[in-house]
Design a protein around this nucleic acid. Structure first.
Length: 1134
RNA sequence: GGGCGUUUAGCUCAGUUGGUUAGAGCGCCAUGCUCACACCGUGGAGGUCACAGGUUCGAGUCCUGUAACGCCCACCA
């Protein structure tokens, strides 16, 4: 397409929008002109815009390329951004990517292993991190390119990365702040340890798989009581020699530090029974049997096991011990409610270091915690003779050895749900490790700055923790401590909940506020450390003093320890000190947290033998800061002050808790202000089987495949159209054969194959799974979805409608077609026409405007209003559908069709041109946020042909659509009467076309028709005569109550009119009879229904008067229609 | 186990606070390469609104229950 205006002629336009070329060109233009870049108003200057509007992008992970879900997410954001930019807001879309700790490290490690046969240990920490940086550079670039190709109008000058310098600084500042407030502590948590990859994996990288396992019963010998004790016992004869426990993980017995029984087994059984009975009543029939079986079981236990459990309880109370076989360790028998008399043997082995529940028991009972695992999944020194064995070997040997000792009881077969690592597909081994936590619960006392936090439980609701903190707060000696105890301050979770409950943050659709509140309501502490290398290193340095730990040690004891040669006092502004009990050694350990920008203290600490924590922070810790860290925090930048809080966040529902909630709470902590005012949760994209799309399942779609095949606008419009309020998007996908372009449905079977033979041409193509060289050499099939065809077709329709308009907006031309010569319009230029009769004013009589003009302008006002409101409230589908229907059915099918006749007539042409140009102009503006490329392209062309546009007062149109003002819906153009009357014309036209089709008369044969109707309707239809001609090739012979009906005619009876088409003797009687009989039947059944309704006295008495009247009116019309149909039938039968 | 959602034409989905004959796109049938567009035009066929109750003058829409499917969260030695 030529750029030169003088040589431009609409005739040279192709009849397809050549999107590939246009997309690249227009995007470059927009970017070069700085339309994406936003600046806050300069200091001291007034804000000339409508105010700030800002969206921060949910930063995509740099693990790989974007998929269709990202395309959806970013399209929805760009639509808001582009609309608000046009509406005159100072609009900023902040882009960036996420370092995605675990995911990225895992991907890079996997590659390292596959391609070089190396592990991360071969490279070392620095080496691996460097590799990951290289990976990041490649994929960040790829991701940003993808976003650009989708048309995203981000402010690329501000592109950020969660692991860049600024974000790292924000992370450290936040960690320091939370640490200073006592909101960060260290505790134990179960880690999902992938022994194959030797790494911790996150919960969402774990999947459950049912495997066949066994339930082993072991007997632990009871150590006989000492003489003295034994004498005091009542009945030594009843004492069991062994306690039986059961487990699915035998090898963990090596780490057992107790066996627990319930302190009141009888009551526990009663309670379990009561619960089951309650459930039995409510349960659906098919579950009742199972519950009944459980009830029976409890009854049986009460008689068979209860006495033993009571005895064991007594033994436990007496402080008796068991001998743990194989390792020969004395372990106590303890009372703890965790032991459920209704399960297993009623007694449960306690392995605090390898089970989260056991860990809780261990803490309650002050048990030692023995970790028996090495990171590689083999057993360590603590396992004694089993040291060095793998878990499974150890398991077999433990069972065999116990059997030899006669301590093995029953072995039951059992199906066990086992966690597996998504990445290695091997079972996860849980074990407890030191972890850092952010405290989410409410805080007693104003500030909690020191000791004891390390003792906190992993569960903030733990009662013991509360008392612990209370005790210490009181001892801090702040005079107001007592008052604060009475009313705890809301903690981070509560603050974040309040922001949503009181409406400062609004979540759409509303129901998602519930998941947000429910999750935060648990106030579970946030584990923030990860045993990885790729991420923000925890800014804490520690050293074990070797001294005995005394709980409640006053702060000054360790605060006095010299941290720096720079002075005797600790600068608490940026260095915080705390002591804790080392979890392994039990001795006193000192921790220093250092704020960013004070490397001199870090060096001092290291010089004194302190070491930095090896762990890194959870990825979400840095993304939680995204809204303020990207705007410059902790610096108080102009951008931060101007755009924070941001306007809206658009994201997917699965990270409401992981991300959205955490942004709110860090925002409130760091900025004392919410991060965004609105949150829109969009649907998820599922495949044809209703399964979440993902690359690892093979059902993913690369948005660029869609862009290549259908164009970015089609991708965007298609996605917007699918974004409804409640439904996830189900999208069947196809392989497009690279040889013959045939589409082959993707099925559960073929989607994981490396190569597929085309069903049509038989040639093979490769897929994303291609591994071998031979497979990779085959051409790859794009994965696409037919669901974008609707949007592609719409784009084409729009292009051609625009083409028509461009061809016909030049002055002095006849209605034109593309096939005519181009020389006619060479020098022609659109001039404002119709101005001699003044400018058109809404809400007044503009005699030059015809019915169809007023109709179109009325519709346009309504559509403008509805699209503006729809997009404002994230009703994307509704807005897209409104535009689609208006553009296709009203603008193209009626207005443009009618315009053809008017443009051919010199007298009517100027007004038609003016309205046509105006309507196209408005339509382009409204469509631009959804389809930016085609609309901008047409806009540029329109500016060449008709640079001055406007209904009320033609003025020079803005040079670029991307920054052109958003149309205002002028509701004064709305005209219900005209719309209703126009509908009569549409109906009459449809009826004539239907008769033509029914009578099988080819379109090229002209028809004559007349319409019998009242005078008012006739007056409306009369001026449309020319359009009946052009749109149905039908000539009107008359309208009105007294028209002469043709001798041989086909007739259609509509509400308020009868339409006769003159068939000049060639009537197909059969067709007419069939049609009229069908109509008669339909009318009869509807009339019967209506009569029934109206003869129902309660309806007439109780329904609103207008409803009753409407029923009566419609019945009368139907009866009229029926009479007409019957008359026609009678005539036909003659 | 807890929570949420979905079920409307062969397929993918709309359907406002209950109120005339439940809509669209694709697909299908018929027809037309007439001058912006065959990625198009014109016309047509196709629905017991998952099932069972209830509320109401009136239910696709509100309530209760059932079934199927999906998602999130938590999980038992």
């Amino acid at each position: 397409m030529t750029q030169d205006m003088t040589s431009f002629s609409p005739e040279s336009l192709p009849n397809r929008f050549e999107f590939a070329e246009a997309q690249a060109r227009l995007y470059a233009e927009w970017e070069a002109r700085g339309f994406f870049h936003a600046e806050p108003p300069k200091a001291g200057e007034q804000d000339k815009t409508k105010g700030p509007y800002c969206i921060v992008i949910p930063p995509p992970n740099v693990t790989g390329a974007l998929h269709l879900g990202h395309a959806l997410n970013n399209t929805l954001q760009d639509i808001q951004i582009r609309m608000h930019r046009m509406q005159g807001y100072n609009t900023l879309w902040m882009p960036g990517t996420d370092h995605a700790g675990i995911a990225t490290q895992a991907v890079v490690e996997k590659r390292l292993r596959e391609e070089e046969g190396k592990t991360r240990h071969d490279l070392g920490r620095e080496g691996l991190i460097e590799r990951i940086w290289q990976w990041k550079e490649v994929y960040e670039k790829r991701i940003l390119t993808q976003l650009k190709q989708m048309g995203c109008s981000c402010d690329w000058d501000r592109t950020r990365f969660t692991f860049d310098e600024g974000c790292s600084r924000a992370v450290r500042q936040t960690f320091f702040s939370l640490f200073s407030q006592g909101l960060i502590y260290r505790g134990k948590r179960l880690v999902n340890w992938d022994t194959f990859l030797q790494t911790a994996v996150s919960d969402d990288e774990v999947f459950q798989e049912t495997v066949k396992g066994k339930f082993w019963h072991f007997k632990y010998p009871v150590i006989p009581a000492t003489q003295a004790r034994s004498a005091s016992e009542g009945s030594p004869s009843a004492e069991p020699t062994h306690v039986e426990i059961a487990t699915t993980r035998p090898e963990t017995m090596l780490g057992d530090t107790a066996v627990a029984v319930h302190p009141d087994p009888a009551r526990a059984l009663d309670r379990a029974e009561a619960e089951l009975r309650e459930r039995l009543d409510k349960a659906p029939a098919k579950e009742k049997d199972g519950i009944q079986a459980q009830l029976d079981n409890i009854g049986k236990r009460r008689t068979e096991m209860l006495p033993l459990l009571v005895t064991l309880r007594e033994l436990a109370k007496a402080g008796r011990k068991l001998m743990l076989p194989l390792v020969n360790r004395e372990i106590p028998l303890v009372c703890d409610e965790w032991a459920k008399p209704e399960l297993g043997t009623g007694a449960v082995k306690i392995t605090p270091a390898h089970d989260p529940n056991d860990y809780e028991v261990g803490k309650r009972q002050s048990l030692p915690m023995i970790n028996i695992l090495n990171p590689d999944g083999t057993l360590n020194d603590a396992a004694g003779p089993y040291k060095g064995l793998t878990i499974y070997k150890a398991r077999d040997k433990v069972v065999a050895d116990l059997d030899k000792l006669g301590l093995l009881g029953d072995v039951e077969d059992r199906e066990i749900e086992l966690p597996h690592s998504d990445r290695s597909k091997t079972p996860i081994e849980p074990y407890l490790a030191d972890q850092w936590f952010v405290k989410m619960g409410d805080v007693e006392g104003a500030r909690d700055s020191g000791l004891g936090a390390g003792e906190a439980s992993t569960q903030a609701r733990s009662a013991s923790e509360g008392t612990n903190t209370q005790a210490r707060s009181a001892s801090e000696g702040e005079g107001v401590a007592g008052v604060e105890l009475a009313s705890p301050q809301p903690g981070l979770a509560q603050m974040a909940m309040d922001a949503v409950s009181d409406g400062r943050v609004q979540i759409f659709p509303e129901r998602y506020a519930k998941s947000y509140l429910d999750w935060l309501g648990e106030k579970r502490d946030w584990p923030v450390s990860r045993q990885l290398w790729w991420g923000h290193r925890i800014p804490v340095w520690s050293k074990d003093t070797g001294a005995e730990f005394v709980p409640g040690t006053p702060d000054d004891v360790f605060c006095a320890m010299p941290v720096s040669s720079r002075g005797s006092s600790i600068p608490t502004d940026f260095v915080q000190v705390r002591g804790e009990r080392g979890s392994e050694t039990g001795t006193f350990r000192v921790l220093y947290c250092v704020a960013p920008g004070h490397e001199e203290y870090e060096r001092d600490l290291e010089a004194q033998g302190f070491t930095q924590d090896p762990d890194v922070l959870d990825t979400w810790f840095s993304s939680a800061l995204w809204p303020h860290s990207t705007l410059g925090w902790p610096e108080q930048t102009d951008s931060l002050q101007y755009w924070y809080p941001t306007s809206t966040l658009i994201t997917s529902r699965d990270i409401i808790t992981l991300w959205v909630a955490r942004m709110v709470l860090t925002g409130l902590n760091n900025m004392q202000e919410i991060p965004f005012r609105e949150v829109f949760i969009h649907p998820k994209i599922l495949d044809g089987y209703g399964v979440t799309m993902s690359k690892s399942k093979g059902n993913g779609v690369d948005p660029l495949d869609i862009v290549d095949k259908f164009g970015a606008d089609s991708l965007r419009f298609g996605l917007a159209m699918l974004t409804t309020e409640t439904q996830d998007v189900r999208m069947p996908v196809q392989f497009e054969c690279p040889h013959c372009q045939a589409l082959i449905d993707q099925t559960k079977k073929n989607r994981e194959l490396p190569k597929i033979a085309c069903a049509k041409c038989g040639k093979e193509f490769s897929t994303q799974w291609a591994k071998t060289e031979a497979d990779k050499a085959l051409p790859r099939a794009a994965v696409v979805s037919e669901r974008f065809e609707v949007a592609r077709n719409f784009m084409n329709k729009l292009w051609n409608a625009a083409r028509f308009a461009l061809l016909n907006l030049a002055d002095g031309t006849q209605a034109r077609s593309a096939s005519e010569g181009s020389e006619q319009v060479q020098s022609s230029k659109f001039k404002v026409q119709g101005s001699e009769s003044g400018n058109f004013e809404p809400g007044t009589l503009n005699p030059e405007l015809t019915t169809e003009d007023r109709w179109l302008l009325s519709r346009l006002a309504t559509v403008t209003e509805s699209v503006t409101e729809g997009l404002r409230h994230y009703h994307y589908s509704e807005a897209a559908k409104t535009l689609y229907d208006f553009a296709w059915d009203e603008f193209c099918s009626f207005y443009v069709e009618i315009a053809k006749a008017r443009l051919a007539d010199e007298n009517s042409r100027p007004t038609a041109q003016r309205v046509l140009a105006h309507a196209l102009d408005t339509l382009l503006r409204l469509l631009h946020p959804i389809m930016p490329f085609i609309t901008e392209e047409v806009w540029q062309l329109l500016n060449k042909v008709a640079p001055e546009r406007g209904l009320e007062k033609p003025t020079k149109a803005p040079e670029w659509l991307i920054t052109a003002p958003w149309p205002a819906a002028d509701l004064r153009w709305q005209d219900q009467e005209t719309e209703a009357r126009f509908a009569v014309f549409q109906k009459a036209l449809a009826a004539i076309r239907e008769i033509r089709s029914r009578q099988n008369i080819a379109g090229k044969n002209p028809l004559e028709f007349c319409i019998k109707c009242d005078a008012g309707t006739a007056a409306l239809l009369q001026p449309m005569t020319a359009y009946f001609q052009s749109m149905a090739n039908a000539t009107a012979t008359g309208f009105g109550p007294d028209v002469a009906t043709p001798a041989t005619s086909a007739k259609t009876a509509l509400a308020g009119m009868e339409i006769f088409v003159d068939l000049a003797g060639f009537i197909d009687v059969g067709a007419e009879l069939a049609k009229n009989q069908q109509l008669e039947q339909k009318l009869l059944s509807m009339i019967t229904g209506k009569q029934g309704k109206l003869s129902n006295e309660s309806f007439v008495a109780r329904a609103p008067a207008n409803v009753v009247q409407a029923e009566r009116d419609s019945l009368a019309q139907m009866q009229e229609q029926l009479a007409s149909v019957r008359a026609a039938l009678a005539a036909l039968k003659k």
